[in-house]
C-alpha cells in the first residue's frame, strides 16, 4: 500500500478498478491508481500458484504489475498513464 504525499487538489480523471469507481489525479500511472488511490495492495495473481503479486521494480522490468486495461490483458501498470473512462481489472487468472 502507498500513501499520497499531498492532497492532489485536481482529481479530474474517473477510472474504475475492478468495477469500483475512483477519481484520481491526471498524469499518474495505473500502478499508482491501484496502489495509492484504489486501496489495493496487489495488482495480479501469479501464473502458476495464484499467489498475490504487486509491483516490485516500478521501472518496467519485473512485469509483476500486469493488469487488464480496457479489456486488453497483460498491460504493465507502471508504464501506462490513467485516462478518463479507463477500466482496470486486476488479473486473477492463472496461465494456460
Amino acid at each position: 500500500m502507498f500513501i499520497p504525499v499531498d492532497q492532489f487538489e485536481d482529481r479530474n480523471v474517473t477510472i474504475t478498478i475492478d468495477k469500483q469507481e475512483f477519481q484520481v489525479p491526471e498524469g499518474i500511472s495505473v500502478a499508482a491508481a491501484i496502489l495509492g488511490h484504489g486501496g489495493h495492495a496487489d495488482c495480479r495473481c501469479s501464473f502458476v500458484h495464484g499467489e498475490k503479486r504487486a509491483p516490485f521494480c516500478f521501472i518496467g522490468v519485473c512485469h509483476e504489475c500486469l493488469v487488464e486495461i480496457d479489456g486488453k490483458p497483460n498491460q504493465q501498470a507502471c508504464l501506462v498513464l490513467v485516462r478518463d473512462g479507463m477500466h482496470i481489472v486486476k488479473q486473477q487468472v492463472k496461465e494456460g
Partner: peptide, 25 residues
C-alpha cells in the same frame, strides 16, 4: 518471501515517488 506484496526494490519505490507522489506504508 521476496514475491510478497509489500516487498519492492528501494530505488524503484523512489522512482515511483518521483513520478506518482506516493510513499510506501
Amino acid at each position: 518471501g521476496w514475491t510478497l506484496p509489500g516487498v519492492a526494490e528501494a530505488g524503484g519505490v523512489d522512482a515511483f515517488l518521483k513520478s506518482d507522489g506516493l510513499v510506501p506504508q
